[in-house]
Every structure is written in C-alpha cells, then in structure tokens.
C-alpha cells in the first residue's frame, strides 16, 4: 500500500493554509479543512507505531483534540502546520507508551526490508532478515524513530527535522549515525 504520510505530497498553498489556521483560531468549526487534509497522514503515522488499530484511532482523536485546544498558541514561524500536528502525535504516542496503553510497534514492508538488506549484503536470505529485525530492536528509541522515518516512510531530512525538533543537518547527521549503528549490529551477529 502506498504511504500517504509525506507532508510534501500535500498540494496546497501555505498562504491558503495560513488563512485557514487564522480562521480556525477564531472559530474551531473552521478547522474542518485542516482536519481533512492531515487526518489520514496522522492516523497512518500513529497506526504504524502501535499494534492495535482501535488504539491508533483513539490516539489520533486525542491528537486533534489537543491540536484544537492549543491552536491559539500556534504561530506561523517557519514550522509547517503539518509538522506541528506530527509533534503532537509523537508526544501523544509516547504518553500512551508510558501509560502502557499501547505497545511500541514498527510496521515494516517486506519489500523495503529486502531493499535495505540488499544494499548491505550481496544476497538476501531469511537469516539476514531475522538479523536486521534483531538489529532494529537493539537501537535506541530516537535512532529507531529516525531510521523508521527515513527508510521505511521515505521522509525528507527537512521533514524529519521538523517533526523531531532538529535542524535539517542535525537530522541528517543523527540518521547517518543511527544507520551506522544499525549496520554495526547487523554485521556483528554474522
């Protein structure tokens, strides 16, 4: 199934969005077009990180409730509105993990997994697959998030930076280090 997570895929004018945000700040009923634009992307972001579908729906609802409650605080200072929503989603997700309401999950596509392995080894075997999964489990959570967003969700470094609160360069460096770590774990168990 094609991913519909990227903020760059959304076709709209930032000025139009800015007007919609300003109207929604005055009256929450005008939040509807923003909700329609981002709901699916936020849901899929959450769904891929929890094991239970109902839990994903609940967390997504909480994200939009929180967004509406704190919309008056949002100011357009270079951070895209979508990234602001993803930050709320990230914080809601980690709150559910802390409260043990949801389990941290990584949803992977076998094709993507195969592509990653083929970049590192000459041929893909089931054993390699098991090793990569084990290596993923050995990563720290922040490293896992970066690898997840970059390789499994194909996000740009700019977007990763916006969501994680890092600069584009910092996101690039940290992702590079996370991949090095992953490679190290992968080859260690050979």
């Amino acid at each position: 199934m094609p991913l519909q997570l990227s903020l760059q895929q959304q076709s709209f004018l930032p000025s139009e969005e800015k007007t919609q945000i300003e109207r929604a700040q005055q009256d929450p009923r005008y939040f509807a077009p923003l909700y329609e634009r981002y709901h699916d992307a936020i849901f899929r972001y959450v769904y891929r990180r929890v094991d239970d579908e109902e839990q994903a729906y609940d967390i997504t609802s909480c994200v939009f409730v929180k967004a509406l409650q704190s919309l008056h605080k949002f100011e357009y200072r270079g951070l895209p509105f979508g990234a602001w929503l993803f930050r709320i989603a990230k914080s809601e997700l980690y709150q559910s993990f802390r409260d043990q309401k949801a389990q941290r999950t990584v949803s992977l596509d076998k094709v993507v997994l195969k592509q990653v392995i083929e970049e590192w080894t000459e041929d893909y075997t089931e054993e390699d697959k098991a090793r990569l999964l084990l290596a993923l489990k050995s990563l720290k959570d922040q490293q896992l998030q970066l690898v997840e967003m970059r390789f499994f969700e194909k996000r740009s470094f700019k977007e990763i930076g916006d969501i994680c609160g890092l600069s584009e360069n910092n996101a690039k460096v940290k992702t590079f280090r996370a991949v090095l770590k992953l490679k190290e774990f992968f080859h260690q168990k050979e």
Binding site: M1, D40, F43, R104, T105, L108, K110, L133
Partner: peptide, 19 residues
C-alpha cells in the same frame, strides 16, 4: 518492541468512516 511485517492498513474510506 514489536515488529509487524506486511501489515494491512485500513483504506482512507475506512478511516473516514471511523472518525
């Protein structure tokens, strides 16, 4: 950490119906 492979995602329509 739980890793799920080739997990089926609900369609946009299903998601919209739900919320």
């Amino acid at each position: 950490l739980k890793i799920l492979l080739n997990r089926k995602e609900p369609s946009i329509e299903q998601v919209r119906k739900h919320q």
